[in-house]
Amino acid sequence: SFNTVDEWLEAIKMGQYKESFANAGFTSFDVVSQMMMEDILRVGVTLAGHQKKILNSIQVMRAQMN
């Protein structure tokens, strides 16, 4: 498990989005775990492969939080 959203993004090789997530207010796992595709688009993730990777990881995160 990760301590910060930045660490999580690095771990899934999506570190290039750290600033975008932070600027959009997605700075805690409570918020990130609620993200939908529209949120991912809003933070500027436009590549389908990256969207899928982030969404898949969020689903895993949700499962671990319950």
Rank of each mutant, 00 (worst) to 15 (best):
H50K: 02
V43N: 02
N56H: 13
M35H: 01
G44D: 03
I58P: 00
S20Y: 07
E7N: 09
S28T: 14
K18C: 07
A48T: 12
I54T: 00
Q51S: 06
A24T: 06
M35K: 01
K52W: 10
A11L: 07
Q34P: 04
G44H: 03
M61T: 03
G49P: 13
V5T: 04
G25E: 04
F26R: 03
V43M: 07
M14E: 01
M37N: 06
G49N: 13
D6Y: 08
T46H: 12
K13W: 08
Q59K: 13
F26S: 03
V43I: 13
M14C: 07
I12E: 04
D6F: 09
Q51E: 03
S57E: 15
E10V: 10
Y17G: 01
I12N: 05
G15E: 10
S28P: 01
S1P: 15
Y17S: 02
E10K: 06
F21S: 00
D30Y: 13
T46R: 10
G15H: 08
L9M: 04
S20M: 15
R42V: 09
M35R: 00
M36N: 15
G49D: 15
G25A: 04
A24E: 10
Q51K: 05
W8I: 00
H50R: 01
F29I: 14
D30W: 11
F29T: 05
S33H: 08
L9N: 01
M65Y: 06
G25I: 02
V43W: 01
M36H: 14
D6A: 12
Q59E: 15
M37A: 11
L41M: 13
L41K: 12
E38S: 11
S57L: 08
K52F: 10
I40N: 00
N3A: 15
E38K: 11
A48K: 14
F21I: 02
G15Y: 05
A11H: 15
T27P: 02
Q16S: 07
G44N: 04
I12G: 03
E10I: 08
L55A: 06
V60K: 09
A63E: 15
G15W: 05
F29G: 03
L47M: 12
I58E: 00
M61C: 04
N23G: 08
V45S: 01
D30C: 11
Q64K: 05
V31W: 06
G25N: 06
D30N: 12
I40E: 00
K18T: 07
S1K: 15
G44W: 03
S1N: 15
R62H: 09
A48N: 12
E7I: 06
A24N: 13
A11E: 12
V43A: 14
L47P: 07
A48I: 13
M65G: 08
F29H: 03
Q64I: 09
R42K: 08
D6V: 06
D6L: 04
K52M: 13
M14T: 01
V5A: 02
L41H: 08
A22S: 12
W8L: 02
E10Y: 06
L9P: 00
V43R: 01
E7Y: 05
F21G: 00
L55D: 03
I54M: 06
L55Y: 12
R62N: 14
M35L: 12
N3I: 13
S20D: 14
E19I: 09
I58L: 06
Q59C: 09
T4W: 06
M36W: 07
K18W: 08
K53H: 15
T46M: 10
V45M: 03
A11P: 01
Q16M: 10
K52R: 11
M37P: 12
V43D: 00
Q34I: 08
L47F: 11
M35A: 03
Q34D: 09
I40V: 10
G25Q: 05
Q64P: 07
M61Q: 04
K13E: 15
D6E: 12
G44F: 02
I54K: 01
R62G: 06
Q64V: 09
A24H: 14
G15F: 05
E38V: 10
G44P: 06
E19F: 07
S57W: 10
M37Y: 12
